[in-house]
C-alpha cells in the first residue's frame, strides 16, 4: 500500500511541476461550446436532467458538457465555472436555477443562456418582468399532451376512476395535472359519462395530492396503492423517476395502468413497461438542440421557446405493448383532439 501511495504522489507532483494537463475533449472548430448546469438529482435521473443531457449530446452543432449539482448552493459556482471556461451557450436545467442564470446573464452579456422550464425573465418586486436579451426561456405546454392523456385514460378506465398526483405543487408539475383533468372532463362532456379524477382538481389546487419531493418512491407507491383501493385503474404520477416503484409493483398486481411523464417510459424503465399506457412527452432535449442550432446559426433571440403539440415540443407517446387494448375509435378520437388543439380549435386551458 505504501508504494502506490508514493507513486501516486510522484505522478501528481510531476504533473504539477510540468503543468501537463490533458485537455478532456478536442475542440472541433466551429462548434458551439454548450454547457449544461443541471438541477439536483444527477445526470441519470431518468427525467429532465437526463433528457436535457441526451438532447445536448445529440446536437450536431455543438460540443456539450455538464456539471451536476448536489444542492442549490452549487448553481452559482457551476455557472461561474462555465463562464470561466468560455462556454458559448449555458443552459440551466430546471426553473430552480433560473435566478442564477439570469444573474450570470446580466453580468456576462456576451454569453448566451437558456433555462429549461422557466421564462428566464428578470422580474422586480411589482411583478414587472422583462426579457433579458441573452436569455432564452424554454417552456412547454405540457397540458396539451396531458389533455390527450386525460381523454385516453377516461376512455380506457373500466372503473370510471382515474388518478394523478405530483412530486411537489410546482407550476411545471401541476400543468400536467391540469391538462389531464381537463382531458377527462372533455371526455365526460362528449360522452355524457362521469369519469372521476382523484388527486387533482384544477378548481381547487390546495386539495391536490403530492409526495413532497421527487425522490421518495416508497411514498409514491403508497399513494398509488391508496388510489387503487379507491378504485382508480389508471394513474398518472408526475415527477420523473418518482413512479418507478409503483410501476414495477403494478406490473405484478395488474391493478392499474400507468401514464408516465417527461420522456417515453417504455425506453427508460427497466420494470413496469408492460403497464405503461403512454407517456406525456416533454421534449427537453429537442428544445436544447433547437437553441443550440440558433446559436450556431447566429439567430439566437430572447423570445421564449414554447414546446407545443404543433412544434412537437410535447407529444403523447405510442401505446407500445398496450396498443392492442386501446380501441380503434378511441385512437381516432385522440388523434382528432390533437389536430384540433394544433389547429387552435380546442382550448385546453
Amino acid at each position: 500500500m505504501k508504494k502506490p501511495l508514493k507513486l501516486m504522489a510522484v505522478v501528481a507532483s510531476l504533473t504539477l511541476i510540468t503543468g501537463v494537463a490533458v485537455a478532456p475533449a478536442s475542440q472541433a472548430a466551429g462548434k458551439v461550446k454548450l454547457c449544461l448546469a443541471l438541477d439536483t438529482g444527477g445526470v441519470d435521473d431518468r427525467s429532465f436532467n437526463e433528457g436535457a443531457w441526451k438532447g445536448a449530446q445529440a446536437s450536431l452543432v455543438s460540443n456539450a458538457e455538464y456539471l451536476p449539482a448536489t444542492s442549490s448552493a452549487d448553481f452559482a459556482p457551476n455557472i461561474k465555472k462555465f463562464v470561466d471556461k468560455g462556454c458559448e451557450l449555458i443552459v440551466g436545467v430546471g426553473f430552480a436555477i433560473s435566478a442564477e442564470i439570469v444573474k450570470s446573464a446580466k453580468a456576462n452579456p456576451k454569453i448566451k443562456y437558456a433555462v429549461v422550464d422557466d421564462a428566464g425573465q428578470d422580474c422586480d418586486a411589482n411583478w414587472n418582468c422583462k426579457d433579458v436579451p441573452n436569455v432564452k426561456g424554454l417552456t412547454f405546454q405540457t397540458d396539451e399532451a396531458a389533455f390527450m392523456a386525460g381523454y385516453l385514460a377516461a376512455g380506457m378506465s373500466k372503473t370510471g376512476k382515474v388518478a394523478t398526483y405530483g412530486g411537489a405543487p410546482y407550476p411545471t408539475v401541476t400543468i400536467f395535472m391540469d391538462g389531464f383533468a381537463r382531458g377527462v372532463a372533455h371526455y365526460n362532456k362528449l360522452k355524457g359519462k362521469s369519469v372521476q379524477v382523484l388527486g387533482w382538481d384544477p378548481a381547487n389546487p390546495k386539495s391536490g395530492t403530492f409526495v413532497g419531493n421527487f425522490s421518495d418512491q416508497a411514498k409514491a407507491l403508497t399513494i398509488s396503492k391508496g388510489f387503487e383501493q379507491q378504485g382508480a385503474d389508471i394513474i398518472l404520477p408526475v415527477g420523473g423517476i418518482l413512479g418507478a416503484s409503483y410501476a414495477a409493483e403494478s406490473e405484478k398486481s395488474k391493478k392499474s395502468l400507468t401514464i408516465w411523464v417527461d420522456s417515453d417510459a417504455y425506453n427508460t424503465l427497466t420494470a413496469g413497461k408492460s403497464i405503461i399506457l403512454s407517456t406525456v412527452v416533454k421534449e427537453i432535449g429537442a428544445s436544447i438542440k433547437s437553441v443550440a442550432k440558433d446559436v450556431a446559426d447566429k439567430k439566437f433571440t430572447a423570445s421564449k421557446y414554447v414546446g407545443t403539440l404543433k412544434n412537437k415540443g410535447v407529444s403523447l407517446a405510442p401505446y407500445h405493448d398496450l396498443s392492442g387494448q386501446v380501441p380503434g375509435t378511441l385512437k381516432n378520437e385522440i388523434r382528432a383532439i390533437r389536430d384540433s388543439i394544433i389547429a387552435g380549435k380546442l382550448k385546453v386551458n
Binding site: 426553473f95 425573465q121 422580474c123 422586480d124 418586486a125 418582468c129 411537489a168 405543487p169 410546482y170 413532497g212
Partner: peptide, 24 residues
C-alpha cells in the same frame, strides 16, 4: 424539510414575480 416548503409558498416568503419556491 416540509416546513420550509410550506413557508416558501406563503405570501410572506414568495418572491414577487416568481411562482417557484424561492424567497426574495
Amino acid at each position: 424539510g416540509y416546513f420550509i416548503l410550506w413557508t416558501l409558498k406563503t405570501s410572506q416568503f414568495l418572491r414577487p414575480g416568481r411562482i417557484d419556491p424561492i424567497a426574495p
